[in-house]
């Protein structure tokens, strides 16, 4: 891992135990994670490994049993419920597998909802929302209801909504899980474009191809991180890898 100059997000010795009658079920059993400014980190692992639970804790959607999460060095455990709700609305952008758009609101109104909740006036957010709808390729569909959009388009609305408050971190939980391959690829391209503009992103996915698009991959198993590796990307390396695979099958003849 590259040394992290200014951690945006930091989880220290985080555990999460869910009550299940007498016995608690441990979803996270001591996770440390540091995400630097501008990093694009994928968290992956088999189902039940705790990756979604971790993402929920990172975004303040849920509270750690022990340990703590820090967003820009502010401990989430010290925040009141109201302060935490405000932080979730203004400093964290969420994207979920099931889009979670409000069905009665247009694409535009879904995108601007966090700004409205933050008490901004339309004059303050209007241009910003239009620019985001444009950036996600939906400038012409601002008036459509979610039901009038394809799955891929709905997810792009959700991404625009997640970005409307210029959050410190964008958290995405299986954002391509409900999409076909091409639409999934569009969504990942969009995340990558935001990443190259400096957006810090944590992406949870079980799909290794999707995880491979990040700059760093964290692999979890049974509630702990078992590996954390950078994914350097160079064209030469890609060519060598492909050559190795082709050669080894050609040698068989």
């Amino acid at each position: 891992m590259t040394p992290v100059a200014s951690p945006r997000l930091r989880a220290t010795a985080v555990t999460k135990t869910y009550d299940d009658g007498d016995a608690g079920v441990a979803a996270l059993r001591g996770v440390d994670l540091v995400v630097g400014q501008g990093e694009f980190v994928a968290v992956t692992g088999p189902s039940g490994c705790g990756k979604s639970t971790l993402l929920h804790l990172l975004g303040g959607l849920d509270v750690a049993t022990t340990g703590d999460v820090f967003l820009d060095e502010q401990a989430l455990s010290t925040l009141s419920r109201t302060a935490l709700a405000t932080l979730r609305n203004r400093r964290v952008g969420f994207v979920f597998q099931a889009f979670h758009l409000l069905p009665a609101l247009s694409a535009y109104d879904n995108v601007t909802l966090p700004a409205v909740l933050a008490g901004e006036r339309p004059r303050a957010y209007h241009e910003r929302a239009l620019a985001l709808l444009d950036a996600v390729g939906l400038a012409g569909k601002a008036d459509r209801l979610p039901s009038q959009l394809s799955g891929g388009e709905q997810q792009r609305v959700a991404i625009a909504r997640a970005l409307v408050m210029s959050p410190a971190v964008l958290l995405a939980d299986e954002p391509t899980g409900n999409l076909d391959t091409d639409m999934g690829r569009d969504v990942i391209d969009l995340l990558r474009a935001r990443h190259s503009d400096g957006q810090t992103i944590v992406l949870v996915t079980h799909d290794m191809k999707i995880a491979a698009c990040a700059d760093r991959v964290v692999y979890m198993r049974d509630g702990v991180v078992v590996s954390d590796a950078d994914l350097p990307k160079s064209r030469d390396a890609a060519r060598r890898t492909l050559a190795r695979l082709v050669q080894s099958s050609a040698d068989e003849d």
Partner: peptide, 8 residues
């Protein structure tokens, strides 16, 4: 994973 990332 590194090889996969390169190929993707």
């Amino acid at each position: 994973m590194r090889s996969l990332a390169e190929l993707v």
